[in-house]
């Protein structure tokens, strides 16, 4: 498993795709951060995180589309499947590599918050009263980051699963984008639905609604469990896909 993880990490960096992902991710993050906070003269980071989730629609497929599709096309999966490695080890190794790339980019994108703290510091120095909080709310930022990483993990698992079903990277990317769009838009659509129970169901499915508590700086254990189970289910299905192909 570790060998596959290492190999995937290396291949992100000897192929353009890793740099493309990192580049687009960081540009998106800084532009969105700049637009939602500094240009809007606000310390509120919640819309930054919401928009970042939308950005994941295009970012995640970049990470996951080649994971299995390429191996299958190049017939290198035969090497992995005849090596003394379990299917679970192989799938988890690849998933962790993609997740590491994602978490790494999220960590680097944290520099976007530094200007907010600097500005807040300057502003605090100018005001004479310190009864109200000036500056970004750290707990909201940390909660948002954790939520973003969890959503990313769930989406990566979905992308991994889709990649294992096709040998065409483009098809994998397009299908992944569509699935993630549906998952994200369910939350948006639910706001326009008046029927209570439909709305409740949509909210329950929605990835966005679960994010709300994290965005407010609350560590929501139910949501954590929700995202973790999505990731687990899709990784499990990926293993099943390979198991089924073996018997096919």
């Amino acid at each position: 498993m570790f060998a596959i993880y290492k190999k995937e990490m290396r291949s992100y960096f000897i192929n353009p795709i890793g740099y493309v992902f990192t580049g687009i991710f960081l540009v998106f993050a800084s532009l969105i951060c700049c637009y939602t906070t500094i240009l809007s003269a606000s310390y509120d980071t919640s819309s930054y995180f919401t928009l970042m989730i939308f950005a994941l629609i295009v970012l995640i497929p970049l990470l996951t589309m080649r994971l299995f599709a390429e191996e299958r096309k190049m017939r290198t999966e035969q090497l992995l499947l005849t090596a003394p490695v379990t299917l679970t080890g192989m799938v988890v190794g690849k998933f962790l590599a993609a997740l590491t790339m994602f978490v790494g980019c999220v960590a680097v994108s944290c520099i976007n918050f530094i200007p907010l703290y600097v500005i807040a510091n300057a502003e605090r120095g100018n005001t004479s009263y310190d009864t109200t909080h000036i500056g970004p709310v750290s707990s909201q930022i940390i909660g948002g980051l954790i939520g973003l990483i969890l959503i990313g993990a769930a989406f990566i698992a979905i992308g991994t699963f889709i990649s294992s079903m096709t040998e065409n990277q483009l098809a994998a990317a397009v299908i992944t984008i569509s699935v993630i769009i549906v998952l994200v838009l369910v939350g948006v659509v639910s706001q326009f639905v008046d029927v209570y129970w439909v709305r409740a169901v949509l909210d329950w499915i929605s990835v966005l609604s679960r994010f709300g508590n994290f965005g407010n700086g609350i560590f929501d254990f139910a949501s954590l469990f929700y995202y973790a189970s999505i990731a687990f289910i899709f990784l499990f299905l990926t293993v099943r896909i390979y198991e089924k192909r073996r018997w096919g």
Partner: peptide, 16 residues
């Protein structure tokens, strides 16, 4: 699998 070395019909090489 530990006891077997296998060269498939198309060598499984990572070209990069």
């Amino acid at each position: 699998k530990k006891l077997i070395g296998y060269l498939p019909e198309q060598p499984p090489l990572y070209l990069d």
